[in-house]
Each structure stands twice: as C-alpha cells, then as structure tokens.
Design a protein around this nucleic acid. Structure first.
Lengths: 224, 224
DNA sequence: GACATTAGTCACGATTGGCTACTAATTCGG
DNA sequence: CCGAATTAGTAGCCAATCGTGACTAATGTC
C-alpha cells in the first residue's frame, strides 16, 4: 500500500483564463509558492459540497476583478502527469476575459502572451493546450470572439479577433456580409475616432434567433 | 468530519458505448448488482498507474468483443449527483461500435435504444446525454459516422447514418457530391444486392489529405 | 416483358463567397 | 483652406457551391 498523506486533495480544479493583449492571446498565471515551476495555472481543491463550476468561478474571482464572460469545462486530466497539487486528476476549465479589463489582483498574477509562457508542470501544460483547442474549435458554436471583446466594439476589432483566433486573414467585405446574414450584432449610435481616418461605428453583441441556418453538412471539414 | 469509508474510490471511469440498431442509436448498459437502478453505464475505478484511456478501454473490452473504433473523453461529472460508485466525480468516455457486430458479453450487458433507456443514476444520465451531444457535435471533425458502420458499406447506408445522427433528411445527390469533394471514401470492387433493386457498390473509409478546404467562417452557426 | 424498386448521375437555377473597386469621413501637413 | 494619407464602409462582378427534380441503370417480381 502506498503512503497516502491525508492532505492530498482528491482532485483539483484548474482554470485557463484567456484574454487578448496587443493582438495576441494571453493566459493568466499565478506565482507558485514553491515547487519546481515559478508560475502555474490558478488551481485549487474543491471545497465541501461545492460544484465544479462554483469552484472554478471562485478561482476566477480570486485572480481578477469581475467574472469571465464565458466559461466551459475542458475535461479531466491526469494519467500520471505531474501537477502542483499531488492529486491524481485535475479538471480543467477555460474562461474568457474581455480585452481592456485585465486587472490581475496584486502582483501574484500576470498575463503571459501565449508565445511566451514559462514552463508549467506537464499536466498543466496539457490543460492549457486543450483549453486553446477547445476555444478555437467552439468558435462557430459559441460567441467566443465576442467574449474576448468589450461590450461595445468596432467591426474591425471584431474581425481582428476572428483573425487572431483563426490565425488567418479574412476579407473585410466578406466578413461583414457574413456578419450581416447571421444577425449577431446591432449597431449603437456611438462612434469612435481612432487617430486618423474615418471614425468607426460601435456595435454590440445582440444575437437574434432568426433563420435556423439549415445548410447542408460540411464533410470537407473532416480533412484538416 | 464526515465518515469516509476506505473503499470509496477517488473517482470512476464511465463508458458510453453507442451503436446503431435498426435505424436507431443504442447504448450499452450493464446489469447493476444492487442499488436503486437495475441497469447502469459500465464503470469501474481506475487501477494503480492506469491511465484514464487505458481504464476506459479495459471497461469496453469487459463488455463487448473487440474494441470501439473511436473513443473520446467527454469530461468530468460530479456536482453532488448520485452515482453507483460513491465517488465524488466520474470521468465519462464515449465509444462507437460498428453496427452489425454488437455482441455483449454474457447476459449481463445489453443494447438499449435511446428511446427506451431505463432509469439511470442522475450522474450517469448526465454522462449519457453529454456523450450524445459530443458525438453529434463532433460529426464534422471526426469520422464519427464511419465508426458506426462496418468497414465496407454502401453510400445509402452512410447517408442513413448521417440522417440518424443529424436527425434530418438529406438529399441523395447533394450528399454524394459533398462526399466526392471531401475525398473521404474510395469504392471497392464489391457490390451488394439487397433484395430487389439495383445492387449497390461497397465503399470503404479512406480519407485523403487533399484540399485543406479553406472556405470562410460560418457565423450563421452561432444561431443554433 | 412490364413493372416496381433501389442505385447512381446530370444539369438547372438560386445562393453564397472571394475579390476589386469604389465612396465616405476623418487627420495631417502644408 | 486644400490635397494627400488613412481608415471605415459598400457595391457589384464572377466563380464556386448547393438544393432540387428529373433522369438513366440494374436488379427482382409477377
């Protein structure tokens, strides 16, 4: 029988908070008190009678002001990969924070661009990658791009967010025509002047449940 | 401090095996030895140093001959919902079994059409529903429909499988044109005569990595 | 051999999507 | 005050795609 210390939690909840900083996705990391890695995804053991969603939300609130506009479970991770807790498994969550309101609490938390993430424990690295995959694959089923933007945004900003998530340039006219057909946004009567050039109208996310969009299946996506 | 019995496993692995029986999806359930429900999703506690995938595969093999052609983790479930194990959380897996080879081991396992599933524990009911949602939503990213068919199949059978999963009629010519464009199947030189009518050519799943299929984004899917 | 039945294809018209080229409104530098 | 530069937003052409009905092909049944 292995020696099991009583303080090892049964499992952990790990949160991947994402936002956009200067045209790049960034993830929130917390300074790790001890152990091999200096930074780690925010995590905690669930408390008694606390649902996993509630625990994830509690962890979010302990690191930033406000709440994520979108949050979803990624899955369970374990398989003998090392983790700051010594639990056997961890349940990962992904959350999106609107750009422009990234205010980590104290100096214990900071945003790291995805291109510059420090070393994490193997299990947390898996969770981070899975969260990114989830966000990217859910783009056309959840309003993911909108949850990374403030409530009001210009169409150019929205397009740039799509380009960031898809890692692909989009054509302006085509993007706007698709947006028009999808009834996802509505214009406000505010405009924003960004340096030189014509001011841009501000829009808000306001999906109208019209046109069930019953186009055929897309078998071609199976290639990738 | 609550009284914790030592034999309570830290977590359980639950498997949702699906197949198609007479034009309906069916799920494999095991007879439950005791407890409030008579049938349950196959589950077990993971053994020492066993990955979650390995545990899920072991559970699959204990209930049917052969292996699922596709298997994926659904997520972690818990949140105080009751489960046959008394663990706090369960990790759900979905697996697909080709139609025509559904041979449950002994009399302890049986296929139940989805329209006729007996009462399950609340947590297992959640896992089953999530597995169905996952399979349906992954249709255009994983070869889900093909894994519910035998290795060789007619295009009409394939179309009927898609119709079953999408719960929607498809037009024959459109379906075949999309299939052609996606380079997913290749014809064999075998034919099958099914009673009256012209015999159908048999095909096999043979995806070719051609044409990255770089069409624009589909914002209209956000309506749901 | 006529007919019913199922497999498989063709081609027309409508819709969609990529793209170039345009107009509109502002700042900057004279 | 005026034109160049810059960014926002739109119009419309053309090719690719998609839904559809009608067609041909091959078999079993009577």
């Amino acid at each position: 029988m292995p020696d099991r210390r009583p303080r090892r939690p049964p499992y952990s909840i790990d949160v991947v908070l994402l936002t956009a900083v200067r045209g790049q996705l960034a993830v929130l990391l917390s300074r790790a008190p001890d152990g091999r890695e200096k930074w780690a995804l925010p995590w905690d053991a669930p408390r008694n009678n606390e649902t996993m969603d509630a625990a994830a939300m509690r962890i979010c609130k302990s690191t930033i002001e406000g709440e994520p506009g979108w949050k979803e479970q990624i899955g369970a991770f374990g398989d003998a990969k090392r983790h700051p807790s010594e639990s056997n498994i961890s349940v990962g969550f992904a959350g999106l924070i609107p750009a422009g309101t990234p205010t980590p609490v104290g100096g214990e938390h900071a945003w790291f661009p995805l291109s510059d993430v420090p070393g994490l424990s193997p299990r947390q690295r898996l969770i981070l990658d899975a969260a990114l995959g989830m966000v990217r694959s859910r783009m056309d089923q959840s309003p993911v791009a909108f949850r990374l933007l403030p409530q009001m945004f210009t169409l150019t900003e929205l397009q740039q967010m799509y380009e960031l998530l898809l890692a692909k340039r989009l054509h302006k006219a085509s993007f706007r025509r698709a947006l028009q057909g999808a009834w996802l946004v509505e214009p406000t009567d505010e405009w924003r002047s960004e340096g030189r050039g014509r001011p841009a109208q501000l829009y808000r996310y306001a999906p109208r449940k019209r046109r069930p969009a019953q186009r055929g299946i897309r078998l071609d996506l199976l290639l990738s």
